[in-house]
Amino acid sequence: MTISLVELLILILASFRLTRLIVFDEITEKLRAPFFNEIVEVSEAGDAEEYIVPKKHGVKGWIGRALNCYWCTGVWASAFCCILYAAMPVLGGFLLLILAVAGGAALIELAVQQRMD
């Protein structure tokens, strides 16, 4: 199977956006919640800080550790994007294009924000 540079760029941007969606975005927070514990620590000044850490044991712990690692989740997201592209080129390609456009927009926004700082 050969793909063009444009198709490769779409896959790269789509996997980037899907990975960020899974690992960081608020919209998927409830999906990540079963795999993490919230820990609240109070400083000597009385300020409370919340930390989210992966569960320690079992499948939930393994998934939590994978979700806590951007690089690990990125491998699985990339695999999903490639399988989707190969298995369903029309519908999958359309969904990947949406993710790729969103990923490109996110990178542009990041560049704009850095210039404003």
Rank of each mutant, 00 (worst) to 15 (best):
I52R: 15
D47V: 10
D25R: 15
G92F: 05
E29P: 00
L99K: 07
L31S: 07
W71G: 14
I22R: 01
F94Y: 12
L67A: 09
L95Q: 08
A66R: 08
F36M: 02
R17E: 14
L107F: 13
L95N: 04
A111M: 14
D47K: 13
I22D: 04
C81Y: 02
V42R: 14
I52K: 15
L13T: 06
A45S: 14
E7L: 06
R65V: 15
E49K: 14
I3Q: 05
T28G: 02
P34E: 10
Y85P: 00
M1H: 05
A33D: 12
G64I: 13
V90H: 10
A79E: 03
F80P: 02
L99S: 09
L97G: 12
E29H: 08
A77M: 04
F16Y: 15
A102C: 07
G58P: 05
E109K: 14
A86T: 01
I10Y: 00
R17W: 03
Y70D: 15
I3S: 02
G46S: 05
A14S: 04
G58N: 02
L91N: 02
T28H: 01
D47W: 07
A86N: 09
F16D: 05
E41F: 09
I27Y: 06
V40R: 08
W76E: 02
A86M: 11
T2C: 03
V6H: 10
L13H: 03
C69F: 03
E50C: 13
L18A: 13
E7K: 03
L110C: 03
G74N: 06
M88R: 04
A87F: 10
P34G: 08
V112R: 10
N37I: 05
G104Q: 08
A111T: 14
R115S: 15
A45P: 14
D47L: 10
G104E: 04
V40H: 08
V40Y: 04
L99C: 07
I108E: 00
C72Y: 08
A79F: 14
I3W: 02
V90L: 12
M88K: 05
G103Q: 01
Y51I: 07
E41A: 13
R65D: 09
L13Y: 04
A111Y: 15
G64E: 12
G93K: 14
I98C: 12
I52E: 13
W71H: 13
I10C: 11
E50A: 14
S78K: 00
L107Y: 12
V112Y: 06
V53K: 15
L99T: 01
T28L: 09
A106Q: 12
F94W: 15
G61I: 03
G74K: 00
P89C: 05
E50Y: 05
A105S: 10
H57M: 12
V90I: 15
V42F: 06
Q114G: 03
R65M: 12
L13P: 00
